[in-house]
Design a protein around this nucleic acid. Structure first.
Lengths: 245, 245
DNA sequence: TCGTGCGTTCCACCGTGCGAAACGCTGCCG
DNA sequence: CGGCAGCGTTTCGCACGGTGGAACGCACGA
């Protein structure tokens, strides 16, 4: 019963104001009578809300979501640093962690006029085709890279890396420099600079990035700011400053 | 089974890095073997994570929490307005909605040096002793006031309103002025100005507030800015501008 | 060394969850 | 206007599966 309920919760999608019971049943594979019963119980606990046209996720999930320690602790420590970086560079700033073969965005400070990049607060993207992801692949636990290679390198943009050998070469380069310069790999026309946030054991537990239009964005110019921000956060979390040459 | 799982999820508290299985069992009333089984299944789906000393809520809940339509749609529309208000006044800004007899904070933009107020993003507080709550009580659906009166008026600060009659008088005054001036009712030394955000039917569906130290905070001075912000958001959401005399 | 409380396993004891089939309703299309 | 498709909901036969008291082994602290 629990498994089915969690399947139902996972059948909701970001950006949909409401979803019908029949559609939730189809997406989750849970039979309609069962889905109806489970959704009623989830509604009683405010995890789901009934709407005229069906159902939507409930406010209770937002409340619980805001108490997840892995997000909350990191985001609280990072916020002043991310705000400074955002004001100093006037570009979109991200904080992300690795989860399986993906990165999950714990914070995103956008800017009016900046590119409409596919990243979303609370959303996830394949690690190999984002700047923060490549920082985590290079400096994070080996399990992240294993997961990426096992799943295979999907293509998010025309210039996404899809060959494992090229990815390894790229990661070696990133380890040398200490930061990532990603160019049109997550979306066309978009460039990104990222740096890892290291924990007490010297392994990356998060990454920070700046993203902007490739045609007006000099990565070499903003890299010092990103690295300073990442080092500052590393220090706050008890780690060494980000390594570099 | 589902009810117990949701009870377990609700047994976690904000700010706790991890909780033991025994403690979760005590708080939720679920027997230890049952709690163990359910936590294992929740861990398999990433709703919960195992830690050295017990368990913590998992990143999946943060992800789902960020796709709750009622929070996401409102917060996305409000963000530019809240950011402007935050920069213009340099005080702490909140966006909240009503839920039962409480308000839930959908957004909070804090300021260095501002009072450490008990509100927390994703957190909830009794509606009657917050500025946003009083705005929602005055201009929101009657069900919110009913819920507050039914639960009774708890005291969050020495100056909290606890008499139903006084609350009604206060709400009448708020309806006349169109905005809330709350003075040390949520926490000592803290003042707040709030205004309702009206939906297409003219009923408040959210509220915006500014909070700061009472000794340096002239509510009459910042009230126009809060009301302008609330009116702007009302218009965006298809409602009339906030009423006032 | 002993006591306490932890996480975990065992197992007897009950329910309870599941989904196919069917129903009544609504909206759309010919 | 009638027929059809798909919806939300109910019924009910059919299995399992969930529950928690008791007990265990372990770790920690006094």
């Amino acid at each position: 019963m629990l498994g089915r309920s969690l399947d139902l919760l996972s059948a909701f999608r970001a950006g949909e104001p409401e979803v019908s019971l029949a559609e939730l049943s189809r997406r989750s594979g849970v039979a309609k009578p069962t889905a109806l019963r489970l959704l009623r119980e989830l509604t009683d606990h405010s995890f789901v809300e009934r709407t005229p046209g069906g159902y939507r996720l409930g406010l209770r999930l937002f409340e619980l979501g805001q108490t997840v320690p892995r997000q909350r602790d990191l985001q609280e420590s990072a916020m002043p640093i991310l705000t400074d970086l955002h004001e100093a560079t006037r570009e979109t700033v991200h904080l992300a962690v690795a989860d399986g073969a993906d990165v999950v965005y714990l914070q995103k400070l956008a800017v009016a006029g900046s590119p409409r990049i596919p990243s979303r607060l609370g959303g996830r993207m394949p690690a190999h085709c984002t700047g923060v992801g490549q920082a985590l692949l290079a400096f994070g636990p080996a399990t992240v890279l294993d997961a990426v290679l096992e799943r295979g390198l999907t293509r998010s943009a025309p210039r996404s890396l899809t060959a494992p050998g090229l990815l390894r070469t790229r990661l070696d380069r990133i380890r040398e420099r200490g930061w990532v310069e990603e160019y049109e790999e997550s979306a066309p026309g978009v460039a990104c600079v990222a740096a890892p946030v290291l924990g007490p054991d010297g392994v990356a537990l998060a990454a920070i990035s700046i993203t902007g239009w490739a045609n007006r964005f000099a990565p070499v110019r903003v890299a010092p700011a990103v690295r300073t921000a990442a080092s500052g956060l590393s220090r706050l979390l008890g780690g060494p400053p980000a390594r570099a040459r």
